[in-house]
Amino acid sequence: MRIDETHRKWFIGSLIALAVALVVYIPYSRSSPQGPTGGSVMGLVYGSVGSAFMLFAGLLGLRKKFPIWRIGRAQAWMRGHLWLGFLAFPIILFHAGFHFGGGLTTTLMWLFIVVFVSGIFGAVLQHYMPRLTLERVPMETIYEQIERVRGQLMDEAAKLVEEVVDALAGNLEKATAEERACSASAGTMGGLTVASGLQVDEEAAVELRGFFTREIQPFLEHAGSRGPALGDRNRSQGMFRQLRVLLPANVHSTVDDLENVCEEKRQLDQQSRYHKILHGWLLVHIPISYALLLLGAVHAVFALRY
């Protein structure tokens, strides 16, 4: 979610709520002889409000499980999650009087810090990463389809190389009927290459096939761009430039196509990285949030009962 001017109401509301909490907290903390504690009336009020905010923030996960329930737009729930979750932290600090307390409460505070920081980190990522993905991955596809698209790219590259290598080697077997007809009328040896506008050049065929087997195939076969030279855009451009020098001009359009295939694979790898970053923080945020809520409930029961 992008945090922009559309969040103004939430921002102002949160700011006011925070200011009120702070205004109440200052005299409360000064008037408490032993300092503010969670067990005092005000402490309990802060604790209840903070817990309610945390609970609401935690319910977002449940809300997402039932996307079509008409219980408020998911967007409102998300904004509530962001801002109330954000507010919960200072309020819980007010509740605890800025002390970590005993074993359980210290654990709770550390968990809360992790949840709070990871949440802010996530919000920052969600603010910037979609735009970054939009700008840097114009060939983006559905994340779950990346493997399939990579397979298609591999097939496409293999087919491109095969066709040109066959033509360069004067192999008539895979030529189309039209090419065969033209090649027959064009003469004998290398009829196909004449028909396709190429000259027989077996050395070029060997060079292209070698480049494909050595560089392109391993790059396309495996996910991830780290390692293979083609994974680096600058090095890739240099390698393809060099390949063009070694091959006849008529093959250059195929080399362009191959370079585009490699570019798309690089973008898919990049999309995959971005996706993992964009959603990876949830692996920390969600389980710890649930742990926090669970331990928070335990803390509440124990604190109120004993």
């Binding site: 992008r2 996307p67 079509i68 979609p130 735009r131 993905t133 964009l278 959603h279």
Partner: peptide, 14 residues
Amino acid sequence: DLERCTRCDQCVRA
């Protein structure tokens, strides 16, 4: 809006 969309697929699920 791809500047806002986090590709969470909630729309498709819904």
